[in-house]
Design a binder for these strands. Structure first.
Lengths: 221, 221
DNA sequence: GAGCGGATTTGATCTGCAGCAACTAAGGTG
DNA sequence: CACCTTAGTTGCTGCAGATCAAATCCGCTC
């Protein structure tokens, strides 16, 4: 829900959302504290979001609490744009996150009347689908080590191969993304560390230096 | 490749493909024998397909042969319509399958110039995405019994709750769709049979009568 | 900077599913 | 119909990863 967050500013900005619609669109900025819900599964899809800073997880739950994270969204990424009227999963801020928000209605109408808008919407959905197809292969057929290696390489790629990979999410989040337990993720990281594929930077376990991307890619079957 | 199949007829027909484009489109009918490839991963996406009869599986492979089936396509379903230029997975006929084929190029151009076409293309991609999201939850977090129950209910639903559910695919196909082994699928079916959730009809193991859809739905967490 | 609570690692044990093997059943062929 | 090939079931054993438990570490707050 929007009201639980403090509005940092409400002003028109342009960015990817505007580019998607092919023209300037009125947006507002919002901030979500770590762990807070951006929207819930089944809620009406009223807004569309683009991350300015921070990270968001989207997930589905089973009745007994088992959780599957579909995807993590990082700065620049858009999420929450549904074709139907309601959200098909829940979105939460992994860490303190600033987002740019715009109303779905205006955006979709604009897109329907403009060529480039419709096709970039389509491109967005297609990229999501492509990611999901790859992730099904990972979840259905890869081993724990292969999954963790693939995850690190995916994040490394999306962040533009930084020297230090700063993970915004916990081991439990990674586990729920990879269909594993947090202990198994932790053990896999330790194995990769022992094999000099990576090293932890500084005190934290959340800052990782990838020492052998090629070796990791071989793990990622 | 198309040339390996025998062309049953080349004539304009209308159907869902035409409806998608918002007008009549020239299509041909093709037939694929059981186990033959419709198109391969990485191939240029030249055609779009709609199943008249039979069934098709689409899948990805890992280097060592592990296979993950994304989805099964049944009569009426369309597949092979990519946004990019190449197919992201392989498609094979599960059993003898007749399809309606049209060139992607003409279809996409038609759609770009027509409102309804673009939005039904979007609807198609969105449905695929939605299916993938649900399947990730299954692959990441459900038990073997839950997966098999979910599979049977999915097929039952898609075939319109027939009295006898005729499975076109083998236990191995089901296993590769559910991220299990064929033995585990077989055992799960036996358990559900012993629990009177289902029964095999006639001689075959491919004809199943669902005796307790509600009970199955409870397994499907 | 001392103390607290959550995050992570690591170890020990357990278990659901995989892997292997043998058997049975079913469809296809001459 | 007899044969053969492929699909499916079932039993047995093994293992990857889950679960349980403990110790350690880290960031946070006061």
């Amino acid at each position: 829900m929007l009201l639980r967050t403090n509005t940092s500013s409400i002003r028109p900005v342009d960015g990817h959302l505007a580019a998607l619609a092919g023209e300037r669109v009125v947006c507002s900025e919002f901030k979500y504290r770590r762990g807070t819900e951006v929207f819930g599964e089944g809620e009406e899809a009223e807004y569309v979001y683009q991350i300015i800073s921070g990270a968001v997880r989207t997930y589905k739950l089973l009745a007994d609490g088992r959780r599957q994270i579909n995807s993590f969204h990082l700065p620049g990424d858009m999420f929450g744009l549904e074709n139907g009227a309601t959200h098909r999963f829940t979105a939460e801020a992994v860490i303190e996150t600033r987002v740019r928000i715009t109303r779905r209605r205006g955006l979709l109408e604009t897109m329907q009347s403009r060529q480039s808008g419709a096709s970039s919407f389509l491109g967005l959905v297609t990229r999501n689908l492509q990611h999901a197809e790859n992730h099904m292969l990972l979840l259905g057929r890869k081993t724990a080590l292969e999954r963790v290696a693939a995850f690190l390489l995916e994040l490394d790629e999306r962040l533009g191969h930084p020297t230090i990979l700063v993970l915004p999410m916990s081991r439990r989040d990674i586990a729920d993304y990879l269909g594993l337990t947090l202990e198994t993720v932790s053990r896999a990281c330790s194995i990769l560390r022992d094999q000099k594929m990576l090293r932890f930077d500084g005190a934290t376990q959340r800052q990782i230096v990838l020492l052998d991307r090629k070796g990791l890619a071989e793990y990622d079957a």
